[in-house]
Design a protein around this nucleic acid. Sequence first.
DNA 1: TCTGGGGTCCTAGGACCC
DNA 2: TCTGGGGTCCTAGGACCC
Length: 413
Amino acid sequence: MAKADREQLVKKVTPTNDQIVLHLDMDCFFAACERLRRPELEGEPVVIGGGFDKEPPRGAVATASYEAREYGVESAQPMKIALDRLPRRESIDDPDAGGYYLKGEHEFYKEVSQEVMSIAETYAGTLRRISIDEAYLDVTQVTSWDTIEVYAKELKMEIQESVGVTASIGVAPTMSCAKVASEYNKPDGICIVRPGDVKAFLSPLSIGEIHGVGPVSEDAFKKAGVETAGDLASLTTQQAADRFGSNAITLHERVRGIDTREVEPVGKPKSISKEKSIDATTNIGTKRAIIQQLASKVNKRVASKSVRYRTIGIKVVETPFEVNTREYSLHGPVQDPLLLEEIALELLIEFEAGEVRKLGVRVSNLDFFDGEQIRFDDWDPPPSIIADRKSKHCKRTDDQRSISGQTTLPDFR
DNA sequence: TCTGGGGTCCTAGGACCC
DNA sequence: TCTGGGGTCCTAGGACCC
């Protein structure tokens, strides 16, 4: 192989190090937002989440302030555990110490987030919003490795001064490393990992701290003796793939500092869904009513977004925690509340006997159109077919269901 | 300890086509 | 009569993230 060819090949798998990625991560964002409008919560343990007022408590913690974390409350923790560790107090006058449990107001958090992101945008060549409290910034064109520290400090200061919340920042030549770096000096911290230092920075970290390693993978890695990112990095690609599957190949690259992804703005959503936990029930009437509610809510959001969907699905979680999904694809995209509800209900029939604790409705295979575009009415099922289908429903008997137990859906797709 | 609600991405089997 | 291989679509489930 010619030397030039070899160099080309090497370039493909070696980080070019010419990218400067900044990961911005707000500290305890929901709790910080609450403190903006309720300064008396400053310094107090604050927990944001739902279901703490249910009996028994259900749901999970969305955000816990650092004061609440002192008691062992963590985000994503079941609310029941949080309440065991940190009892709830009703008001500041409540003589019993405890934590402030708040339901949270997403609309308000979104407004604060928008202020933060607007500032961040002015610091970025390209900005990718990951969630309400997190973003990647490509700053390659607007600063340099020599000036990055001052640059990051300025961004943090401007957010703090004009919005009043604190952020942590990680900077690295790859997205995956920047993500880990922002966690490193939390809260209100900056961590800069320069080109060439990525592997050494990641090596001592527990494998579970790598982005993309969840509880299942962490367990599998540790059982096989891979405790740290460095342990994974020391395997050959072949070993990593053989022992942990193809998914490990990407992780194996990441822990060695190889990640060629670039910061790109987020595109259109792929699906729109709504789900709801309920008191476990076998009552088919209750289930149907919930599905109808959810379908109507999904429809509202779909309608406000000028989007059609081609696939309609439901999610049914049976006790103890068995997740089932069913979906049905049409021939062409539609936006049709009636059809959405009816198909969702059809898909539910299979689960009429089971004990259900959670239900969801989802649309996917989305097709966006701007308001001015002419509707593709020819793709909508003609009313005659809907009418035909309705009459079939009335006459439907059990032997019209397939032997697999799946419902028979009208084949107008 | 027992799991909310919103998503994304991946895998794998089967149907179907050429 | 027996039956290759590649590609795409659909569906279900699962891991993971915030």
